[in-house]
């Protein structure tokens, strides 16, 4: 197992590099006191990203009568969340959009899962009992599964074995199955990658503990529970990542952190579906 762990560590070191501009954008969006000018300034420095943002805002989904031609107006119109999606898709797309045969998932499944989890984590954050920046929850939701793109390459013919092991009760969940086979789970691998990408500390918490939110440091729990709930909602909506979909537990104490009754949960699901569908359509239609 130590040999496999070493190979995984090397794979993390070889992972695609996050662009400087995407890195900076994620740092800005994670800070509480930023404004839209900071975001515009970063995008203005990246010609490819600027072009992509302009293509998205002028896509037919938004139905603008007059095309938007400046990055200032484009960012203001699309909002920070959409711009973060575009920047991340541009910079980390190779890792986040690839097929995951280790999970029997198609290309694009992980990206859709991440997007849905991001929108759902943001909506959950609006119901958080503790103080929480909803846009930070969106970014953390978008990044929570970055470990899967790497650990996937080491999961060979394991999906069926894991699923039947969990069904028979031999394995508690998919996370444990990954750890038993490889000595690493996708959360631990993701945490290593988050450090390598120099992502802000709150994102580290969400990546490391989105399946075990009670283990997060106390100051990070509102965020990590929001991402946990967002992740679960993505799987329930059918936007999972293949064989591990729904193969994790819901934290018993989620209600201590997120205040949602039945009606609010259903309304939240509707809201998330609309935001998600619009984002997917806009990014496919540019």
């Amino acid at each position: 197992m130590e040999q496999t762990r070493e190979k995984i560590r090397k794979a993390i070191a070889r992972a695609p590099v996050l662009s400087v501009h995407a890195q900076r954008l994620l740092q800005i969006c994670a800070s509480r006191d930023h404004d839209v000018e900071d975001v515009i300034e970063v995008i203005r420095c990246d010609a490819t990203l600027t072009a992509r943002v302009l293509r998205v805002v002028n896509s037919s989904v938004y139905g603008l009568l007059t095309p938007i031609t400046t990055i200032e107006r484009a960012v203001t119109y699309l909002g920070e969340r959409m711009v973060t999606c575009i920047a991340l898709g541009e910079s980390a797309g190779r890792l986040m959009k690839k097929p995951l045969p280790g999970y029997e998932a198609k290309g694009g499944d992980l990206w859709k899962h991440d997007l849905y989890a991001g929108f759902a984590a943001r909506q959950a954050a609006l119901h958080a009992r503790g103080e929480l920046d909803a846009d930070l929850a969106f970014t953390a939701g978008l990044l929570h599964d970055i470990g899967k793109g790497i650990i996937n390459d080491f999961l060979v013919d394991s999906a069926e074995r894991f699923v039947s092991g969990i069904a028979s009760g031999e394995l508690p969940d998919y996370l444990d199955a990954e750890r038993q086979l490889l000595g690493y789970d996708h959360c631990e691998v993701g945490l290593e990658l988050a450090r390598q990408w120099r992502l802000p500390t709150p994102i580290h918490w969400a990546v490391a503990w989105h399946h075990t939110p009670a283990r997060a440091p106390e100051e990070g729990r509102p965020l990590v529970y929001a991402v946990h709930v967002g992740d679960v909602l993505a799987m329930m909506a059918g936007y999972g990542t293949g064989s591990d979909s729904l193969q994790y537990g819901l934290a018993k104490d989620w209600k201590d952190h997120i205040a949602l009754d039945d009606g609010e949960l259903d309304r939240l699901v509707l809201e998330v579906n609309e935001e998600f569908n619009q984002a997917v359509e806009a990014m496919n239609d540019e």
């Binding site: 329930m236 994790y248 537990g249 009754d261 039945d262």
Partner: peptide
């Protein structure tokens, strides 16, 4: 379907 250990409310 539901996730594991899913209580009724969710």
């Amino acid at each position: 379907a539901a996730v594991m250990k899913c209580e009724d409310n969710f």
